[in-house]
Design a protein around this nucleic acid. Structure first.
Length: 553
RNA sequence: GGCUCGUUGGUGAAAUGGUUAACACAUUGCCCUCUCAAGGCAACAUUCACGGGUUCAAAUCCCGUACGAGUCACCA
């Protein structure tokens, strides 16, 4: 019985050939140097920070080279598939502005190299597997899981290499007639690749980030098709898909490094050109004294949902991820503050080869800078959109007080060195709540006075100021001069230098004095510019807040 | 256990054989200042996991050790 006959027996309905597919998916016509890259997650849960890094790198690679970035859904393991994860992945890519050029989503196919869902490509895989069988490079294997376990136990006990290779590949050299008979009997089988590698010989390849790597050749007959759903394993799907989709650069986690010799052999069996590999290091997490791989379960910040819920601007997360991915990103960013992130010339060589800790402090810093640069109206819109999804109370508040919110957010924002108060949208409320009148009805309100706590003194100052000094139309300079005037009149020192010379001569200084007004009006001793706050509040609301204070005390 | 990769401060890291080991974040201090935020200035690795070697010279090259990580599935 010939190999071809065996192949026909296993795949009787496959009529297309490898050549047919080569013609269907011709080489892409792209400008010189254009990179074709892909983001190929398996739909097993949520989007992970590691996925995010990979997607972002891919996006940069494609955009900066006028190439193509496509999304491929690797759903060959149906047991692990989780409902809704495709939606989440799609949503996340959209949220972070790293949308693929080609994808398949909700029945819509964009791009001519699809299907982009592996389970829909089964006929393609079968065609290529059939070809491999017909040339003797693949064979059905009937080893049961119990037998496999036995082999593994034996190998491990006798300190041999684990795997199906050499004499452990029991069905490798069984005559086709016997294989055919077992198939006719209905026995379950997987298709294994027939390796021709030699473990004692070296295989050298160049990883774009790690450099030259020398490994033993692959000699294991790995399964390329599973017995249950007849879907290919990752290794086989990778080779076929990335060849037919004409991928030029494969960005994937370091955990794949050790299977490169296998992939190489698979590509070579078809005579395909191998793509270039960029193996990215893992993102780690410090857990007490130990450093470990970041975990979806233990670390909330591992999941992309975390950042969205906290309200980090998408660009902050992207920049933080790129900072980790490429050591020269920060320098590039300071030199190109307003250039879109995807113009960054990502260099695999400059990628750290050891795992990095994702630093939330750094993220905060990046985020503060980004938020500080937004015009107040833009920030308001972003804030509103975030609140709509995650905080109904805030949403109602800022919808009803749009003008005050924008005015407040605009304090010290239009100058060259704007304030950096907020690292994300969820932190804004805690620093702005006091401008909204309805928030003052709450019982819990407490005043955070500083040095001066004497109620009568506070009352006296406030009365005097509101009745005889405050004028809504004053400029900031006039406003402050008046404060100083009252300050001196009530024996608080308006000159900080003078005060420092002999503090005992005064009841306090201007800072103490303004703190009183600040606290009565906001409850907090730490706020942005008081002049601007008074301007937003206006005389009546100031008066009202003073009355609230009188009631509370 | 086999194979592979890695190890520079609290964090991300630069340096690719040559003066005092960049820079950014964090922390601390000072200055500025109506508080805060910012900004300015400073401090923070007697030294590059450890041991040996090559060299006039090593964080950088070589060897060994330790430690960490990845992988060795009909999971990706």
């Amino acid at each position: 019985m010939t190999n071809q006959e065996l192949a026909d027996l296993i795949f009787p309905n496959i009529t297309k050939t490898v050549e047919d597919y080569e013609l269907m998916y011709p080489k892409r016509v792209l400008p010189e140097g254009a990179k074709v890259v892909r983001f190929a997650p398996s739909p097993t849960g949520f989007m992970h920070i590691g996925n995010m890094m990979s997607a972002t790198i891919n996006y940069c690679l494609a955009k900066s080279s006028n190439g193509v970035f496509f999304l491929r859904n690797e759903d060959t393991d149906q047991k692990r598939s989780v409902e809704g994860s495709v939606d989440f992945i799609y949503h996340t890519l959209d949220y972070y502005h790293i949308m693929p050029d080609e994808y398949e989503y909700n029945g819509e196919v964009v791009g001519s190299y699809g299907p982009y869902i592996q389970s829909k490509r089964i006929e393609i895989y079968h065609t290529f597997i059939k070809y491999l069988i017909s040339i003797g490079r693949a064979y059905p294997c009937f080893l049961t899981s119990a037998e496999l376990e036995e082999i593994r136990a034996y190998q491990s006990k006798s300190k041999r290499r684990i795997g199906i290779y050499g004499r452990y590949a029991k069905f490798r050299d069984v005559p086709n007639e016997e294989l055919a008979q077992r198939i006719k009997n209905g026995e379950k089988f997987v298709i294994r690749f027939r390796s021709e590698g030699d473990f004692n010989k070296k295989f050298i390849f160049e990883d774009l980030t790690k450099g030259k790597i020398e490994m033993p050749q692959n000699d294991i007959d790995v399964p390329i098709m599973k017995s249950e759903n007849l879907l290919p394993t990752y290794h086989f799907a990778h080779v076929i898909d990335d060849h037919l989709m004409r991928t030029t650069h494969v960005v994937r986690g370091e955990e794949w490094m050790s299977s490169v010799p296998l992939h190489f052999e698979l590509f070579a069996a078809f005579g395909f050109k191998m793509p270039k590999y960029i193996h990215t290091s893992l993102i780690l997490k410090k857990d007490g004294d130990t450093i470990r791989k970041i975990s979806k379960r233990k670390d909330p910040e591992a999941l992309m949902f975390f950042y969205e819920e906290k309200g980090y601007p998408y660009l902050a997360v992207i920049d933080a991820v790129l900072t980790i991915a490429n050591s020269n990103f920060e320098e590039w960013r300071t030199n190109h503050p307003d250039t879109p992130f995807y113009c960054f010339p990502f260099s695999p060589k400059k990628m750290s080869s050891s795992g990095a800790l994702f630093d939330l402090d750094k993220l905060d810093n990046i985020s503060k800078n980004i938020i500080a640069k937004m015009p107040a109206e833009t920030l308001y819109e972003e804030y509103l959109e975030w609140a709509k999804k995650y905080d109904e109370h805030v949403y109602n508040l800022i919808t009803n007080h749009k003008d005050d919110t924008i005015s407040f957010l605009n304090i010290e924002r239009t100058c060259k060195k704007p304030r950096k108060d907020y690292e994300n949208y969820s932190s804004i409320y805690h620093k702005t709540w006091y401008i909204y009148d309805e928030e003052w009805d709450k019982e819990e309100i407490t005043y955070d006075f500083g040095k001066i706590t004497d109620k009568d003194e506070i009352k006296k100052i406030m009365r005097e100021y509101l009745n005889n000094y405050y004028n809504e139309s004053d400029t900031e300079e006039v406003w402050f001069n008046k404060i100083k005037e009252l300050c001196d009149k009530l024996n608080y020192c308006s000159d900080m230098k003078k005060y420092k010379e002999k503090p005992a001569a005064y009841k306090g200084n201007v800072a103490d004095f303004t703190t009183i007004m600040r606290v009565v009006l906001t409850t907090s001793s730490m706020t942005p510019n008081l002049y601007d706050i008074m301007k937003i509040l206006g005389r009546d609301r100031m008066q009202h807040r003073f009355e609230i204070f009188l009631k509370k005390y």
